[in-house]
């Protein structure tokens, strides 16, 4: 299993079992057994699926506050981008090809399933800082 597949499997577990009330990837079905759960205790599906919300600079802090919910681990953007871009590049902070202007346009005009970000939610000055951060982040 590649790292990418492992991550997707984790996403599958998470989405299905924990969030959406469905279980997945267990395979411990016990049919009509008198003890339907089969007594086998497992870790909760979706364990450790929490997002890393840490930051090391003011610009990164802004990114976490305004963007990470969708663009770090388990975010909608990361998940959808993983279907479209080269492996590893679904994380905006790891992208090597991001231009600040592109980031700003994508945020204001929306892109794919990403809605437009209002100027109340992220001010022009904040967006400048985030775009500059993303342009550099993946190229370090």
């Amino acid at each position: 299993m590649t790292l990418f597949q492992a991550r997707n499997a984790r996403l599958a577990l998470f989405a299905a079992a924990a969030m959406l009330g469905l279980s997945a990837c267990g395979g411990a079905g016990t049919g009509n057994a008198p003890s339907p759960a089969g007594g086998k205790q497992q870790a909760n599906a979706g364990a450790n699926a929490m997002q890393d919300r840490s930051y090391k600079s003011d610009a990164e802090k802004l990114f976490v506050e305004k963007c990470a919910m969708c663009h770090r681990d388990f975010g909608m953007g990361t998940v959808v981008l993983a279907r479209r871009v080269e492996k590893g590049q679904e994380w905006l902070e790891k992208r090597t090809d991001l231009q600040a202007d592109f980031v700003k346009t994508a945020a204001r005009a929306g892109i794919g399933n990403m809605p437009r970000i209002t100027r109340s939610d992220v001010s022009d000055a904040q967006l400048d800082a985030i775009a500059a951060y993303l342009e550099k982040a993946g190229r370090k």
């Binding site: 279980s23 079905g29 009509n32 008198p34 339907p36 759960a37 086998k40 205790q41 497992q42 909760n44």
Partner: peptide, 12 residues
Amino acid sequence: AGKPVMAMRPTR
């Protein structure tokens, strides 16, 4: 008990 579940996994 006795219900035709497909899977019933305990979580903890």
